[in-house]
Amino acid sequence: MDNIFDLDSMLLELNKKGNSSCSLDVLHNNSFEVGVLRLNPGQKDTQGPHSEDELYFVMEGKGLINILEKNHEIRKGSCIFVPSKTKHYFHGNKERLVVLYVFNVSKS
């Protein structure tokens, strides 16, 4: 099992999928799911609400995240918490936006 992940390698793997996919899961265990979301300018974020709490960390770019119909500016270094079942999506990026995500999947 790999415990160290390289952002460039994750983005290369995501590029192999083409524009049909904007996310790549890199780790999934009993506690959490980790992956990377990449949106090119004009690419639509198609995610919907998730049943788990989420934490996002912006690795590259800037844009907006809409949470419950309210827009929030984000940029490299932004950390965003989204509670479970909350409607949200990224948008408004004029350059590539790369976001690391962590989902809490533990069943307490």
Rank of each mutant, 00 (worst) to 15 (best):
M1G: 05
D2Y: 10
D2R: 14
N3G: 11
N3I: 10
I4C: 03
I4A: 13
F5K: 07
D8L: 12
D8S: 15
D8V: 07
S9W: 06
S9I: 13
M10Q: 11
L11N: 04
L11T: 04
L12P: 02
L14Y: 06
L14E: 15
N15D: 08
K17T: 04
G18T: 03
N19I: 04
S20R: 12
S21C: 05
C22S: 14
C22W: 00
C22L: 03
S23F: 06
L24M: 07
L24W: 03
L24N: 03
D25P: 07
N30M: 09
S31L: 08
S31N: 09
E33L: 11
E33V: 08
E33I: 06
E33C: 07
V34A: 09
G35D: 01
G35C: 02
G35A: 05
G35T: 02
V36K: 00
L37W: 02
R38A: 11
R38E: 11
L39M: 04
G42N: 14
Q43D: 10
Q43T: 07
Q43E: 08
K44V: 14
D45G: 01
D45L: 03
T46Y: 05
T46C: 09
T46V: 15
Q47M: 14
G48P: 07
P49R: 07
P49K: 14
S51C: 10
S51L: 09
S51R: 12
E52R: 01
E52A: 12
E52C: 11
E54T: 06
E54D: 04
E54C: 05
Y56L: 08
M59Y: 05
M59Q: 09
E60V: 09
G61A: 04
G63W: 03
I65V: 09
N66R: 10
N66Q: 11
I67Y: 08
I67H: 12
L68A: 12
L68V: 15
L68E: 15
E69R: 13
K70F: 12
N71E: 09
H72N: 15
E73R: 10
E73T: 13
E73P: 09
I74H: 00
I74K: 00
K76D: 13
G77I: 03
S78D: 05
C79I: 08
C79T: 07
C79W: 02
C79F: 04
I80S: 02
I80G: 02
I80D: 01
F81N: 06
V82C: 01
V82L: 02
P83N: 09
S84D: 11
S84G: 12
S84V: 02
T86P: 01
T86V: 11
T86S: 15
K87I: 13
H88T: 10
H88S: 11
Y89E: 06
Y89I: 01
F90I: 00
F90D: 00
H91E: 07
H91W: 09
G92K: 02
G92C: 03
G92E: 02
N93K: 03
K94D: 11
E95Q: 15
E95A: 09
R96Q: 10
R96W: 01
L97S: 02
L97E: 01
L97R: 00
V98P: 11
V98K: 03
V99T: 04
L100N: 00
L100Y: 01
L100P: 00
L100D: 00
Y101E: 00
V102N: 11
N104E: 05
N104H: 05
S106I: 08
K107C: 12
S108T: 06
